[in-house]
Structure formats: structure tokens, C-alpha cells
Design a protein around this nucleic acid. Structure first.
Lengths: 213, 213
DNA sequence: GGTTATTTCAAATTAGTATTTGAAATAACC
DNA sequence: GGTTATTTCAAATACTAATTTGAAATAACC
């Protein structure tokens, strides 16, 4: 039963590592704390993963894989649905994915961007850029063929920002504050609705201003 | 001339410290690197500031004071101007302030939020919350008296997010990428215009949906 | 049941970094 | 110009944390 227990311990280390990395960041997270919270010996990380760095990378990928499976990018809306509905699908899925406190990949990605270790650079680039392409294409469709590239990019960035920033901020606040203090965003469905309304109105306004602002 | 030179050295340390803290974060920034870049001895930080922590705090405050002076919150728009114009003033000022690469306070604040040292907690709370109140009040005014608190908060958060997130992301990208690669946002006036258009359309759409969504 | 491979463990090692120290240099003051 | 206060400096110290090590425990395999 060595194998089974060992696998379980590896899983536990991955999970705990995710927690600690989110709480402290890569540098301030200590191998000692991760091992002790996972009820493992101090040398478990090096035995199972080789190094703290490798553990960090594996923990991210582990969480990322799980979160994509749980929240498909299109939000389950059919490709043939009207563009407005597809936008709703994409944004709702994104919001839920970011808001889910079991998901660590997105939050770690944010940390990595603002204070990079460099350890996730390649993986993130290869995973995140394709994601944005989807939204970009949809925004272009909604704006119509006359829209300039600048208009498309500005709109896309505005929309993604409305999804990402508030929820990341809320997760940050929850980490510090009293956990049973009321959140600003309690109902993510309502929030997703709000964002979709706001986004569609914005797109319309930008689109109808024509090409020369 | 000991006094004068000493003051100059302190200033230089503050400036260099800001750079290094932005590049590496508090933990990965080393006193050794700060001193060497400032052409000072390794013990200069402790001599002038007492500790690395104190230097960090002073560097932030130094930058914050300067940036507020350069970019007044209302963007220079009169209190008696129409609400739309005041919004334009606030958002343009915010965007310029964040985008200005000489300003380190906002970027450090973002780092602090996602990966807190705890050293700036109180100062930031006392400085940043009042800022948001201004925008919140203005959004409430634009939405009209019938708007619910949730609508006001959602709109405010959407608008701030549209200003903050894209520019922070761009500064992050610039740090990594080739400096003469084209930025997504080149013209901050055009971007501010876009955000104002988008925001006003969003506010209108949310407002006219009535109180029950 | 004995042998081998795997996993756990506590202690030792190594490396990096903030801070302290005390002497030397420099400027201010009379 | 001599005395005192301030500032600079290189080396020493103290501490934290990742990694290594080799022995002990445990399970797998025949």
C-alpha cells in the first residue's frame, strides 16, 4: 500500500501547496509550512517533486486543468446561439471560474503577473492567450465589420476587466477580512447579468459612434 | 556639505527603492541591490531608514504624495460641471495617474493587495477608500435616486475596473516585453474617451432597466 | 518469511540576506 | 586648525529556509 498512500500524499501536498502559495505568494510560502500543513515530513516536497519550484508549477497546472474542466469556456452555450447569448455564456463561465474559491489557478496567475517568479511564464502564455481570442472574436462580431481594431481591443479589454478585477479584489478582501462580513458581490448570477448588460450597452455605444471618434 | 549630500542620497535611495520594489516585489528586492544601484554602501538603508521595511513604507508614501499632487482626483473639472463631465474628469485623471510610469505608488498598491506584506495596510486603507467614495457618489448621481445600492456598487466597480485593470496589465506587459513593441493602449486620451463612453452607456442601460432586474 | 524497493524521518548542510559593528573618512563648527 | 558630529565603509554576525543525507520504517514481491 505504499503506492496508494504515496499518491494520496502527493495529492495532499499539491492541494496544500496551492493554498499556501495563494496565501503567501511563492517566495513567502515556506516548504516547512506546506509540509507541516500536509502532515508530511520536511523533505517530502523534494522527495516527491524535486524542488519547491517544481511543486509550484505542478500545483498550478493541477488547479488549471481542474478548473477548465469544471467551467468550459463557452459556458455551455451552443455555437449557433445568438452572439449576445454566447457572450453571456462566456462571461458567466469566466466569472464563476474566478469566483470559485476552490480554484487556485486564476489567482496564482494574477500574482504571477504582478510579481513574476518566471516559473509559469511559458505555460500561462500558451494557455491564456487562446482564451482571450474567443472573446475578442465575439466582440468583433458584436461590433460589426465597420469597427476599427482599436475599438475591438478597447471593448474587449473593458469587458474582461469588468469580469476579472472585481472578483479578484473581492477574493483579496475575503482573505483579510472577517469571513462572515458581507461581500459586495454575493450573487454571481446577478453580477454576471449586470456585466452582460453593461457590456452590451457599451459595445452598442462604441459601435454606433462610427469609426472616427 | 554632509547634510546636502546626505539628503540627496536619501532621495536617491527612495527613488531606486521604488524601482526595485516594483521590479521584484518587497521580498525579492534585496537591500544589497538597492544600495548598489543607488551607489551607496550596503548599510546605507539601515543608516538612513532603519530597516528595509521602513524604506518600503517611506518609498510608497513618497511616491503617493507626488502622484496625488500631479493628478488631482477631479481631473481639474469644476464641481459645478455636469455629472458626465465630472466623470470624464475623474476617470481621465485616474487613467493618467496609473499609466504614468514615474508613479510607483499605484503599482506597489496592486502588489500589496494581491500579495500583502502588511506594511502598507493602514496607510492604504486610509488613503484609498476616500478616493472611491468620490466615484461612488458620482455614479449614484448619474443613476438617479431610484437606483438600488446593488446597482450603484456594481456600476462603480465596473467603471473602476475598466480604468485600473487594462493599464496595470499593460504596465506588467511592458516590464517583460520588448520596450519598443507596440502597446495595446497607446493614446490614453482616446482610451479615457472610450471608457467614458462605455461607462455612460452602461450606466444608462442599468438605470433604465428599473429596480427589479 | 526473506529480500528488495519505496517512503518517511530528523539532523546536517548550504546558501542567501538583513542587520550590526567599529573603524575610517568627511564635513561642520568654533 | 583642532574638535566634534555625521556619514561611509568592509567585514562580521545572525537568521531563515531550501536542500541533502543516510539511517530507519514500511510495503511489495518472490
Amino acid at each position: 500500500m505504499t503506492r496508494k498512500k504515496s499518491e494520496a500524499k502527493k495529492e495532499k501536498l499539491l492541494a496544500v501547496a496551492g493554498d499556501v502559495f495563494i496565501e503567501k505568494g511563492f517566495r513567502d510560502a515556506t516548504v516547512a509550512e506546506i509540509c507541516s500543513r500536509a502532515e508530511a515530513n520536511i523533505s517530502a516536497v523534494n522527495y516527491h517533486f524535486g524542488s519547491k519550484e517544481a511543486l509550484y508549477q505542478e500545483a498550478w497546472r493541477h488547479s488549471f486543468t481542474k478548473s477548465l474542466k469544471t467551467y468550459p469556456l463557452d459556458g455551455g452555450v451552443s455555437e449557433t446561439a445568438p452572439a449576445e447569448e454566447r457572450l453571456r455564456g462566456q462571461l458567466t463561465a469566466m466569472i464563476r471560474r474566478i469566483a470559485d474559491e476552490n480554484n487556485k489557478d486564476f489567482f496564482i496567475a494574477q500574482m504571477e503577473m504582478i510579481n513574476p517568479t518566471g516559473l509559469l511564464q511559458e505555460v500561462m502564455k500558451s494557455e491564456l492567450i487562446p482564451m482571450r481570442q474567443q472573446t475578442l472574436a465575439l466582440v468583433r462580431e458584436l461590433l460589426g465589420p465597420e469597427a476599427t481594431d482599436e475599438q475591438v481591443h478597447f471593448c474587449e479589454t473593458s469587458i474582461i476587466s469588468m469580469c476579472v478585477h472585481p472578483i479578484v479584489m473581492q477574493r483579496i478582501a475575503r482573505r483579510t477580512k472577517d469571513k462572515n462580513m458581507p461581500d459586495i458581490i454575493e450573487d454571481f448570477t446577478a453580477f454576471a447579468d449586470h456585466v452582460v448588460t453593461f457590456a452590451l450597452a457599451g459595445i452598442n455605444a462604441v459601435g454606433s459612434r462610427g469609426n472616427k471618434p
